[in-house]
Design a protein around this nucleic acid. Structure first.
Length: 414
DNA sequence: AAGGGATCCAACCGCTCCCTT
DNA sequence: AAAGGGAGCGGTTGGATCCCT
């Protein structure tokens, strides 16, 4: 019992997963399913133990994962569920679609516990700290186990939550409305490529892009030395003030990035491409992925909560100079850049995201709550108008499905 | 500028549960 | 019934990065 036999085997890799390993695992599970986890590494050609593969799939590669920061509603729900269930992270995760137990556990330990204490609530019992201290004094020998939490304490917590929510300035600005005033027009404007502003607010994954992306991104194999020689910083943090500090010359010529670190002030940052040019290289993707530090820590783009990032497929036509604003994946939340970079790296991940997006898209747009989905500042109005007036949701879903089919066909031929 | 503490989070570890033989 | 093995869970660790002095 206990430790897995596979863990005794020598020469198994540990630590962070490389993009190549992700690709192998994703490809294998997409094709065959996981079956017996202990046999997955061998079948997928991975030097990992089955547990590690399972964890990676569950916490990172699964296509139904929700990306980005937790919404205020999610945080409140986690607090309520924790009051009821205690540290039963998997049971809590079951109530939050797209979230993993690990993610929730980390959020709890790093953020929510602290917030509760700041509000005078004991994070273990969910009772007021003063009450807990008193009862500790009365009975120092009886620990406060999760199982002892009463419904009464949950109810008292619920009374406290509204105050907690409204006054909380979350570390990473998860409540977009709270952050909105911090975004000045100039700051936002600085983050955009000015003459592409309209396009870049809410554009799509055009078919051209998908074709180019697929063909070019798929033009590698795991043994190809040109395929990612770098490793993502999986914590998605920064290298400097700009998000593109180390573009190579080729990429600089093909991508027109915003020139300042205020890119993140926008609700929808994007790349601009000429269709005839190359897609971002691994280096550029890496740069983007490492440019998110301020996002995690209350930077200018700390806001914009709720729905997971996804694909839009409603246009993306070139402007008069031949530039097309490409938004293969919308960035709505801190940390999305990390995901975007990795998805750009890996067509399988992209396909999984596309599939997930296609499944969710119409439902997503049909249930948008204007007051919570976007910061209604002046620069995003075109985006909002665009959304409000979106007339081809089904069409865009269809487009996504077709994109998936194209990607799948291409993957099948590689 | 440097360095040391704080923070975050992906991944690992060790345990229990449950199913199969 | 007992043993073995796989899956899943919760706690913990360690690396990367931030932030303060």
């Amino acid at each position: 019992m206990g430790r897995h036999s596979c863990c005794y085997k020598q020469k198994l890799r540990k630590g962070l997963w490389s993009p190549e390993e992700d690709e192998k695992l994703l490809r294998h599970i997409t094709e065959y399913g996981h079956g017996c986890w202990s046999s997955v590494p061998k079948q997928a050609g991975l030097q990992r133990c089955g547990k590690s593969c399972r964890l990676r799939w569950i916490n990172y590669l699964r296509p139904d994962l929700k990306r980005g920061a937790f919404s205020q509603e999610e945080e409140d729900l986690i607090i309520e569920l924790h009051a009821d269930l205690g540290n039963k992270w998997s049971q809590i995760a079951a109530k939050l679609p797209g979230r993993t137990d690990n993610e929730i556990k980390n959020l709890w330990n790093s953020c929510l516990k602290k917030k509760l204490r700041q509000r005078g609530i004991d994070p273990v019992t969910h009772k007021p700290l003063s009450e807990v201290e008193n009862s500790d004094d009365k009975d120092a020998t009886s620990g406060h186990t999760q199982d002892k939490v009463s419904r009464g304490s949950v109810e008292s917590l619920s009374q406290l939550i509204p105050q907690f929510s409204s006054s909380e300035t979350a570390r990473s600005g998860k409540n977009s409305n709270l952050m909105a005033p911090a975004l000045s027009k100039d700051t936002v404007a600085d983050g955009l490529v000015s003459n592409h502003q309209e396009n870049s607010m809410m554009n799509s994954c055009s078919s051209d892009f998908v074709d180019n992306f697929s063909l070019q991104q798929l033009n590698f194999s795991s043994s190809d030395s040109s395929f990612p020689n770098f490793w993502f910083t999986q914590t998605g943090k920064t290298l400097g003030n700009t998000i593109f500090p180390d573009f190579n010359s080729n990429v600089i010529s093909t991508i027109s990035p915003p020139s300042t670190n205020s890119l993140f002030s926008t609700a929808s940052a994007g790349f601009n491409f000429k269709p005839s040019d190359a897609v971002p290289s691994a280096t550029s993707a890496s740069s983007a992925s490492t440019g998110t530090a301020d996002l995690h820590n209350g930077g200018p783009y700390s806001g914009n909560s709720l729905f997971s990032w996804g694909l839009l497929a409603d246009g993306g036509s070139p402007d008069k100079e031949g530039w097309t604003s490409i938004h293969p994946l919308e960035f709505h939340q801190p940390g999305d850049f990390k995901w975007a970079a990795e998805y750009l790296q890996n067509p399988l991940l992209m396909a999984a995201a596309l599939q997930n997006q296609a499944q969710q898209q119409s439902n997503l747009y049909n249930h948008i709550k204007p007051e919570t989905q976007f910061v209604p500042d002046h620069t995003s109005s075109s985006m909002w108008d665009h959304l409000q007036g979106h007339e081809s949701l089904d069409d865009s879903s269809d487009t996504c499905v077709k994109d998936i089919q194209r990607l799948t066909a291409l993957l099948g031929s590689t």
